[in-house]
Design a protein around this nucleic acid. Structure first.
Lengths: 333, 333
DNA sequence: TTGAAAGCGCTACCAA
DNA sequence: TTGGTAGCGCTTTCAA
């Protein structure tokens, strides 16, 4: 019983098995081109198990010149159930294709700085949600061997594949619905929380766009995710004289709706309220909350896109519009 | 203007700057022990920038023999806002200490298999939520150079530091409260969704424990996260003759409460309802939802524990109980 | 002040 | 069927 305090390497395995490091490598990787006798295989495997040998991924990918790591920056703001589900599906699908998905906690890193940090890991593909990545960042990543760079956001970025998730459509959808229901003085809740601008701004813009050229007005309603903030907005409601609200998402909608009802405002008679994301809670509210249902891309499709791009890095960047938005009308509008 | 199609290495930088690779390394790492002339520094830096040089993390840590990577398995089930916030704080705090946090997408990997996969990356520390890691997994990780292994779960694991998050306390807390309010026939919602057993089972156990030896009865109520399932449970309510429910968390509480109210059940007169997690939505419901407030460890504290463990790997494994549970009574109980 | 060279752990080519 | 060995990109010791 020999104690080996430091991490065992393939050389240790070789020594214990009485073979060369090459043979160890052949056996443990089941190299097809080389035939190793069964007794030798056993000796090697037993030695590896006895030592608790675990191959060193860095050394391996250094030697190979490439890895199967797909890197995603971890979202800086707590992700909602929609995005979480999408992420899980994506991880699963990429796992099936033998990629390793890694979420990189890039707190405090901005733009090209972040891209550099990601590039240091030499991932084979990088998936970037939001607008943090510019053309220079893409160039850095490609230069560092990333065979696929995919952005998930509102705009195309030079050199990268794009899954266009245009949240304008969400606002557009909601506004069109409210207008069709006869509403003209429309408020738009904009979360006061930092980190949500990436979604809230385009949603607001979509409302403005849908309503431009009509007789409707659009009023921004900054709102923090607290009861107090909602109560305050509700207290000032009469002066605003709004007859409808698009509330960024179902949670903010619920928050505001509750505050309005507590102030005696009738929904939908006095004010129509519509949220977004089609969360379960909207169906549980009374009146039931109308919402904009959002269709995210399927994780399997995205995994397919990544795999294709990795296999054919020369291919022209694809751009897909993948955000489907549709109104689910319930009782609040 | 020379085109370099493949990823530039420090050798490329050295060539372009007309110096040796050693000098490049000295300059780019600001090595204190060696003094390099200012002109040389400039030449090296310019060359690096011109080539878009990004160091190769794997090569670096291979050479160094260690990395600053803290690995966490990515949660297989969409994380709630509580856990997301905790995770963000942790990432931030570890980032401040110059660690790189990486969430590893270990879909489909179980137990020791997973530990092996993590060990291949040679992380300096591993943080594992839940119960997926056993003593053998810990051994594999330590063997592979992990200087700190921390579990976040209900039990201590041999050889690892532990942040004991005993969800029994949540159920215990809720049950004690309901009993004190005079309730005796107590239902406990158990989510039908897979992946939640890790939390739901101990919460149920806590209820049982709190009520053992009393005249109260405990009834399991399996419930899927859909309106239909909730309606079904509510329809069968009269036969059950329950006078209180602890609903796993606020979302399931809301779901069931809504269904009960739609059936004409009065809350809290006929049935007291209490949730857990103290989510915003509980305050917005009518009647306002009583809940069990859960205090997770602060990310900064955990980061501190990790850092201490990394610096002193020989130290005895610490175990801290870090889950605080307290009832927030509102109107539903 | 700078350079030459060894070596981290691994795989794959070429010989034996 | 197996072994020797070069070399992936990097840092660091030792020499110059």
């Amino acid at each position: 019983m020999v104690q080996i305090p430091n991490t065992p390497t393939s050389a240790d395995v070789a020594r214990l098995a009485g073979v060369s490091r090459a043979t160890v490598s052949y056996v443990l990787n089941n190299t097809g081109a080389v035939r190793i006798s069964e007794p030798t295989r056993r000796r090697v495997r037993d030695a590896a198990r006895e030592l608790g040998y675990v191959p060193h991924a860095a050394a391996r990918s250094l030697r190979a010149g490439h890895s199967r790591m797909v890197l995603m920056p971890a979202p800086a703001v707590p992700a909602g159930p929609l995005y979480s589900a999408f992420l899980n599906e994506l991880q699963w699908a990429l796992g099936r294709l033998d990629y390793t998905v890694v979420q990189y906690g890039s707190v405090g890193l901005e733009g090209d700085e972040a891209a550099r940090a990601w590039a240091e890991l030499r991932p084979v593909a990088v998936l970037v949600p939001g607008t943090g990545l510019g053309p220079r960042g893409v160039a850095v990543l490609k230069r560092s061997g990333a065979r696929a760079v995919v952005t998930l956001g509102p705009v195309r970025v030079e050199g990268a594949h794009a899954l266009l998730m245009d949240h304008d459509a969400v606002g557009h959808c909601a506004a069109t619905h409210l207008y069709a229901r006869g509403r003209r003085r429309i408020g738009v809740v904009v979360p006061a929380e930092a980190g949500l601008e990436a979604y809230s701004r385009p949603r607001l813009a979509g409302v403005r766009q849908a309503l431009s050229g009509t007789d409707a007005t659009v009023t921004e309603l900054p709102l923090a995710h607290t009861e107090e903030a909602a109560a305050e907005v509700a207290a000032r409601w009469p002066e605003s004289a709004l007859d409808a609200v698009f509330a960024y998402n179902d949670e903010y909608a619920m928050l505001l709706m509750r505050a309005l009802m507590d102030e005696g405002v009738r929904i939908p008679e006095d004010v129509a309220v519509i949220g977004a994301d089609d969360l379960m809670l909207g169906r549980l509210l009374r009146p039931r909350l109308s919402t904009v249902h959002i269709e995210l891309p399927s994780g399997r499709d995205l995994a397919g896109l990544v795999d294709r791009a990795v296999r054919d890095p020369g291919g022209a960047p694809e751009a897909h519009t993948v955000l489907g938005a549709s109104v689910v009308r319930r009782e609040s509008t």
